[in-house]
Design a protein around this nucleic acid. Structure first.
Lengths: 266, 266
DNA sequence: GCGCTTCATTTGTCAGACAAGCGGGCTATA
DNA sequence: TATAGCCCGCTTGTCTGACAAATGAAGCGC
C-alpha cells in the first residue's frame, strides 16, 4: 500500500506529520476525546517509519494537542488544553483557512488590554535600536501602502514586525518572548484587519504616532496611541471594543506612571 | 560500561534525560554555543537506548534549549533563546538551586506590570466559580499561616493558586494559558518572597483585599490591590519597584475603564 | 598555497523485536 | 445464571542494528 498523503523529502518528517495531523484536528476530522489512528496505521498512511510517526506524535503531545496511553492509543485533547502560546500551535491556527472566531476574538481582546500597557513600558525602556526596528517597520508599511496595495501580505508582515518591536522595546524577557510566541497569532489578527486598503493610511498614521510617543519617552501618550491602533483594528475586525473604555485613558497613565515627559528623568 | 547517572525506571526515560541535561546546562557544565556529547556518548552515560536519548534531545530542541545539526552534533543555545514561557523550562528553572537573578527579576517585573491590569480585567469578568477558587486559596493561606508556619511550602502553593485564579478570572484564553505557563515561574518568585513569616499576615490581608475588590466588580480597586501585593513582594525580594509608580493608580482605572462600581452596569 | 578528493563523525530515518499496560472475551465456579 | 479470574490481542514504550545524508578535517596533487 502506498502512502495516501504526500510528504516532502527535505523537511523533517516528524514535523510534517505533526502539521498534517494538527490540520486534521482543526478541521474536525477527529473530535476531542476521540482516539486517533494507531502508529502503524499512520505508518501506512504517510509511508514513513514508525520512528518518524512517533516523532510527530511526540511533538503533538508536548504541545498538549494529544495525549497518549499505553494500551489505549492516542486521544485528541480539548482545544482548551492546547498550548495556545506555542509558535507551532499559533502557526497551525494561522495557516488554517477557518480559524475559530472565538480564538481570533481572544487574541484581539488580549492585545486590546495588554498592548497599551506594553507600549507605555516600551516608552520607558526602549533604546535606540528598538526605535530603528520600529522605523524600519513603519517605512516598510509606507512603501507597501504606496505600491497600490498589490502586496498586502508584505504590509501585514511589516505591521507585525512593528508590534513585535514594541514588545521587545519593553526590554523584559517575558514580554519579549511573548512577542515571539504570539507572532503568528498577531499575524492572524492583523491580516484579517488589513483587508481593506482605505484604512491603511490611517493605520500608518497611528503607528507613526505610537512610534513618536515611544521615542519621546511619553508613556501616557504611548498608551493612548496603542489604544487607538487597537480601536482601529477593532473596527476593521467588526468587533465591539470593551464597553466603558471610551473615555480618555491618557490621563490615567499620567497619574499612575508619573509624568511621561522626558524631563522626568532630570 | 555501566551508566554513570542514575535513571528511574517508572518515568519516561526521555523526560529524565532532558531534565538531567537541562540541569547540566543551567549549572554551566556546558556553555552556550558549546557542542554537547554525541548521542552514543549519552547512551553510555545514561545506560539507555539511542531512541530514548533522541527522545530527550527532541524535547530540549522543541524548547529552544539546544539546536541539532547533521554532521555537527548538538549545540547549546543562548539562554535568551530558551522558550522561557514553557512550563517544563520554568519548572527546570524553579527546581534549580541558583536560578539566574536576572530571570527572577524579569519575572517579577512582568508580574509587577501585568498583574494590576489582569486584576482589573478579572474584576470585570470574573464569575462565581472564580471567586470560589480565590476564596479556597485565601483560606488555605490562612490555615497554613495559623499553623506556626512549619508548612511554608503549602502557604506558597495556596499563594500561587490564588494568583492563577485571578488570571483565570479574566476569562480570556491568552491570559489563562499564561497563568498555566507561568505557574512554576510564579512559584519561583513567591517562594523567595515568603521566606519571612512576619509579613505573612500582611500578605494575607492584601490578598483578601484584592479578592474583595474583584467580588465587588471594582476594576480600579482591584488594580490598586494587586499593585499593593506586588509592592509587598518587591520589598520581600529586596527589589526596588519601578520608579515613578508610587502615586495613586486607583484614579487611573476609574478614568480609563469607566466607573468601577457595580452600578455602572445598570 | 590552493582546490579537490576522501574519509571519519554525527544526526536523520528505517526495520524488526520485545516489554508493559489496557480492554474484551472466554471459562470455570458458586 | 451471575461473577470472578484468566487469556489474548492491541497499543504504546523501549531496545537493537543498520543505512542515508551532511558536515568538517585530513590528505593529495597541482
Amino acid at each position: 500500500m502506498e502512502p495516501t498523503v504526500t510528504i516532502s523529502k527535505d523537511l523533517p518528517l516528524g514535523d510534517q506529520i505533526a502539521a498534517s495531523l494538527g490540520h486534521d484536528l482543526l478541521s474536525g476530522r477527529y473530535q476531542p476525546g476521540e482516539v486517533l489512528p494507531t502508529e502503524m496505521e499512520l505508518v501506512e498512511r504517510f509511508g514513513v517509519s514508525r520512528a518518524s510517526v512517533r516523532s510527530g506524535l511526540q511533538t503533538l503531545t508536548s504541545r498538549g494537542i494529544v495525549e497518549r496511553f499505553v494500551g489505549m492509543g492516542t486521544v485528541a485533547r480539548d482545544f482548551r488544553d492546547w498550548n495556545i502560546l506555542d509558535p507551532m500551535v499559533t502557526g497551525l491556527l494561522a495557516d488554517h483557512a477557518n480559524p475559530h472566531p472565538d480564538l481570533v476574538r481572544s487574541i484581539f481582546e488580549f492585545r486590546y488590554s495588554a498592548e497599551p500597557l506594553i507600549a507605555s513600558l516600551a516608552a520607558r525602556h526602549a533604546r535606540a535600536r528598538d526605535l530603528v526596528a520600529m522605523e524600519d517597520a513603519v517605512e516598510g508599511m509606507a512603501r507597501c501602502g504606496a505600491m497600490l496595495g498589490t502586496e498586502e501580505a508584505d504590509f501585514t508582515a511589516h505591521d507585525v514586525s512593528f508590534h513585535v518591536a514594541v514588545y521587545r522595546g519593553t526590554h523584559n524577557a517575558i514580554w519579549t518572548h511573548l512577542a515571539h510566541i504570539l507572532r503568528p497569532a498577531i499575524t492572524l489578527v492583523v491580516r484579517r484587519s488589513n483587508e481593506r486598503t482605505e484604512e491603511l493610511r490611517e493605520a500608518l498614521a497611528r503607528h507613526r504616532a505610537l512610534m513618536e510617543a515611544i521615542r519621546l519617552r511619553d508613556p501616557a501618550g504611548a498608551f493612548d496611541a496603542a489604544l487607538r491602533i487597537m480601536q482601529l483594528t477593532a473596527v476593521e475586525l467588526g468587533i465591539d471594543p470593551l464597553q466603558g473604555e471610551k473615555s480618555d485613558v491618557s490621563a490615567m497613565l499620567k497619574a499612575s506612571f508619573g509624568a511621561g515627559s522626558p524631563e522626568e528623568e532630570a
